[in-house]
């Protein structure tokens, strides 16, 4: 798929909260036989942070890089599994905070961990049809894992905002996008429940790998790109092993995966994961480089994107905090503080 008009990323911004819970803190409380955790630490939001506040900061970073008047933004779309309200949009609060109201499309998107890239595909289409000049797509999550469950090691917080606009203003042009979805029951959460359920080993081969690799291969075939022509590749990162193996199965080197692989340090940012990886790749990329981005959302599906960076990228890289800036500004917390920050200590 590609839009009728040439479009691309005119601004981008990530956000990772300041607190880190080391895997050793979780295994200290819930020993499972001495095995290492699937990531070394995960990013945890502070007491006053949620998907709304993190989306606002990522959006402000994207606007700082784009340098446009926020009143020109025609859509503000936020994909997440952790919208603070069940009914009342995250997107209107974000649009108000960045000055994009009132003539703006605003909506919240839902598709497990690919809600953010779904919003991005729609923004590419809306801008690419000429209906709006700029569209803001955000993937952001403050994920919760059930205590002692395997997901507790990885369920993290963070995400990114991508401002889509005309290709001539872009730091990366969109060359095309592909979606691959099936009804695959690997992970779900029913209304009113705090924690998701998952189908254990089923989350790997039939879910994550089948969808991610099919979308990636289809996109590369459509664009006529060979894997060795990619400067950077970014996958959804539920842990370290899955994206690493997906890259290997596509024939990608460790170097091609390096910039965008963040899960070892911050865990799984759910709907923010592949978008944050893309932003980290843009933070470090050079002009005229090809980037492959592949999301995965349970239930299940993958969106793949092919980007080519432009000569406008270097001058915008330092106009806002980078993902590495956010990862470096960390403060380790223990399990008790983690429970407090996640609102799990009952005060009354």
């Amino acid at each position: 798929m590609r839009p009728a008009l040439p479009v691309g990323i005119v601004g981008y911004g990530g956000y990772v909260p300041r607190y880190r819970l080391p895997a050793s803190e979780i295994s200290r409380l819930w020993p499972s036989g001495g095995e290492d955790g699937p990531v070394s630490s995960k990013a945890v939001p502070g007491l006053d942070e949620d998907t709304v506040t993190m989306s606002i900061e990522a959006a402000r970073n994207a606007l700082d890089r784009a340098g446009i008047d926020p009143a020109q933004i025609g859509a503000v779309w936020v994909g997440s599994e952790s919208h603070p309200y069940a009914v009342k949009p995250t997107s209107t609060i974000v649009a108000e905070a960045i000055g994009a109201v009132p003539h703006v499309l605003a909506a919240d998107w839902q598709f497990a961990c690919k809600a953010g890239t779904e919003a991005l595909q729609a923004a590419l289409g809306l801008v690419g049809s000429g209906m709006v000049r700029y569209g803001l797509a955000i993937g952001m999550d403050a994920a919760q894992g059930k205590p002692s469950d395997a997901l507790e090691y990885t369920a993290a917080a963070g995400g990114a905002a991508i401002l889509v606009g005309p290709a001539e203003e872009a730091v990366a042009r969109c060359e095309g996008s592909v979606s691959y979805v099936t009804d695959t029951p690997d992970f779900w959460r029913r209304p009113g429940r705090t924690y998701p359920e998952h189908a254990g080993r089923f989350t790997g081969q039939p879910a994550y790998f089948a969808h991610s690799l099919a979308a990636a291969r289809e996109l590369l075939a459509e664009l006529g790109w060979r894997p060795d022509e990619l400067a950077h590749a970014v996958f959804h990162q539920p842990n370290v092993r899955f994206p690493t193996q997906a890259g290997q199965q596509l024939g990608l080197s460790r170097q091609q995966m390096a910039l965008g692989l963040l899960s070892p340090e911050i865990g799984n940012a759910y709907a923010g994961s592949s978008l944050l990886g893309l932003v980290a790749a843009l933070d470090g990329a050079a002009p005229e480089q090809r980037i492959l981005q592949v999301s995965f959302g349970s239930g299940a599906g993958s969106d793949a994107f092919g980007w080519i960076t432009t000569p406008l990228l270097p001058e915008r890289q330092q106009l806002a905090s980078t993902v590495r800036d956010y990862i470096a500004r960390q403060r380790q917390i223990d399990y008790a503080t983690y429970l407090r920050y996640r609102g799990q200590i009952v005060m009354e």
Binding site: D50, P84, Y85, I93, Q317, S321, T322, R329
Partner: peptide, 17 residues
């Protein structure tokens, strides 16, 4: 839920790539 302004120390920036 009420959202609003707070202030934080200006974050340090790591060196450019």
């Amino acid at each position: 839920i009420s959202y609003g302004y707070k202030f934080r120390p200006v974050p340090e920036r790591v060196a450019a790539h």
